[in-house]
Design a protein around this nucleic acid. Structure first.
Lengths: 197, 197
DNA sequence: TCCTTTGTGAACCGAACGTTCCACAACTAT
DNA sequence: ATAGTTGTGGAACGTTCGGTTCACAAAGGA
């Protein structure tokens, strides 16, 4: 079988994921990953082929451990009526905590990626588009549970506006956390008001 | 006086602006600017000090020639009731045209910048936050003119959701133009429906 | 004409980048 | 024990980066 792996692949990927998340694909160098993880570049290239391979693994990990758990209450079979509100509220809290310490990455790895130079890459654009669809689908189910009596047009509109608020909040998170929170609060209030009618 | 300038400073700045817009600050090198404008790097450094100086000039130009003209119908004294709708509609059209040819830059220079590595820079973050405030103020006046009878809470909520739709549309523009357009359409429909009541 | 000022083009710098290569270490199967 | 396979460590590759320097050309004022 050959020599056993001595480094922790999972930790390597999640560390790299946080670095990409915080600084963007192009700003993370092999040397940075080496320094942060203690794993030599030969091992990195041996395991992932190149930086792009490591990035792809980081994106997959981001989707599995960050995005989907957050969406989970809206993707299960029986969706609670408050699932959308809870989602927005948790997102708000996550953004509010950001940058108090520099520890937690801000915004969204995929939106940051889409805005960066690598966003022009077709494969990356498709991943981001797929993420947007996954987010939209989940929120649509959350809106459906929240506004079961609304007509399809209204629900679709509310879904798109809620998704827009999420994206705008994540885009603003780095630059103006207060504005990002206010945006999400407005989305929560709009959904609540819509239900009252 | 000494020798007169032979290159066109305005063209140099607008060309650089488009390059930053399309590829992001970090992806543009001095050599790229040289190749695109025909102006030597000595002249560039002589006129702008360094790459950051050129970028600042490009951002100022972006605000003056792209952003503020778009917002203008909402910043004049007498705001038309359809000014917000027109703004969103024009934004939608601009995004729809994108990427049919590779000519027009996609998205928003400032949002791209905020998402990139240079977004961590305090000065840059403040410029982006100021842009967000300028956008919010203009849209608030547009919403005010569109919904003159609505209460302050509703207007504020609609303002934030409209701003969110703009930002989300611009963020999605590169990656999924159809989704970006659909988001702006939803914002237009929501505003129109709000007026009907 | 001479002098000062400014633009220009080319060469060069040290640093950083992603990537490749090779010798050696560690492990399994025979 | 030996051969074969796989991970590791470190050096080095070639390229590109932003920035600097310098000699020279061009233009206007004295």
């Amino acid at each position: 079988m050959g020599r056993a792996v001595t480094h922790d692949r999972g930790k390597l990927v999640s560390d790299a994921r946080d670095m990409f998340w915080r600084k963007g694909f192009d700003a993370v160098s092999v040397a940075d990953v080496e320094a942060a993880t203690g794993v030599g570049r030969s091992s990195i290239y041996h395991a992932f082929g190149n930086m792009r391979g490591l990035f792809d693994a980081a994106v997959t990990d981001y989707l599995d451990t960050i995005v989907r758990p957050r969406l989970r209450p809206m993707t299960v079979e029986k969706v609670d009526g408050d699932a959308v509100i809870d989602y927005l509220s948790r997102l708000r809290d996550a953004i509010a905590v950001i940058d108090r310490d520099g520890a937690a990455p801000a915004g969204c790895l995929l939106l940051t990626t889409a805005a960066g130079n690598i966003g022009g890459d077709d494969a990356v654009a498709q991943v981001v588009a797929a993420y947007h669809r996954e987010l939209s689908t989940a929120i649509a189910r959350g809106v459906q549970a929240h506004l079961p009596d609304a007509d399809a047009t209204t629900r679709d509109r509310m879904t798109r506006m809620t998704v827009a608020a999420s994206i705008a909040g994540l885009s603003l998170a780095r630059v103006d956390a207060d504005a990002a929170c206010a945006t999400l609060d407005a989305a929560i209030a709009t959904l609540a008001e819509q239900r009252r009618r």
